[in-house]
C-alpha cells in the first residue's frame, strides 16, 4: 500500500504513539482499499463537483464593521499576553 502513515501524520501534525500508529495504519489501509473501487468507474469527460449549488458571484460590499471578538477571544485563549495571543518559541533543529 502506498499509504505511509509517518508522512501523513507529519503533514497532519499528529504525534501518533506506536500502538495507535499500527492500528490506524491498518484501518486506513483497509479504507483506502475500499475507496479504490472508484478507479473502475469511467469518469472521462465528467466535471468534478465542488459545489452542489449552481450559485456564483457572492460578494459583500467593502464596508468596515467593528467587532469586539478579540476581547472575548483573548479572554478564553490558552495563553494571551495583553492584546496578543502567545505561542512557544520556534526552535530550529537541523
Amino acid at each position: 500500500m502506498e499509504f505511509k502513515i509517518e508522512r501523513v501524520a507529519e503533514l497532519a501534525r499528529l504525534n501518533l504513539k506506536s500502538e495507535e500508529k499500527q492500528k490506524l495504519e491498518k484501518d486506513l489501509g483497509a479504507i483506502l482499499d475500499y475507496v479504490k473501487k472508484l478507479e473502475a468507474l469511467d469518469t472521462k469527460g465528467v466535471e468534478p463537483t465542488s459545489h452542489v449549488l449552481n450559485m456564483e458571484n457572492v460578494f459583500r460590499a467593502d464596508e468596515v464593521k467593528p467587532s469586539d471578538a478579540a476581547e472575548k477571544a483573548l479572554e478564553h485563549a490558552p495563553h494571551a499576553d495583553g492584546r496578543f495571543f502567545k505561542v512557544p518559541k520556534i526552535v530550529h533543529r537541523d
Binding site: 501524520a9 499528529l14 501518533l16
Partner: peptide
C-alpha cells in the same frame, strides 16, 4: 517549550481515534 511540539502534542492528545482516522485519511 517548542512551537512544533505544541502542534503535535495538542492534536495528538486532543483528538480521539475516529477524528485522527479521518484527519489522516483526508490529509492523504
Amino acid at each position: 517549550k517548542d512551537l512544533r511540539e505544541m502542534y503535535f502534542e495538542t492534536r495528538d492528545q486532543g483528538f480521539g481515534q475516529e477524528a485522527k482516522r479521518r484527519i489522516l485519511l483526508g490529509t492523504f
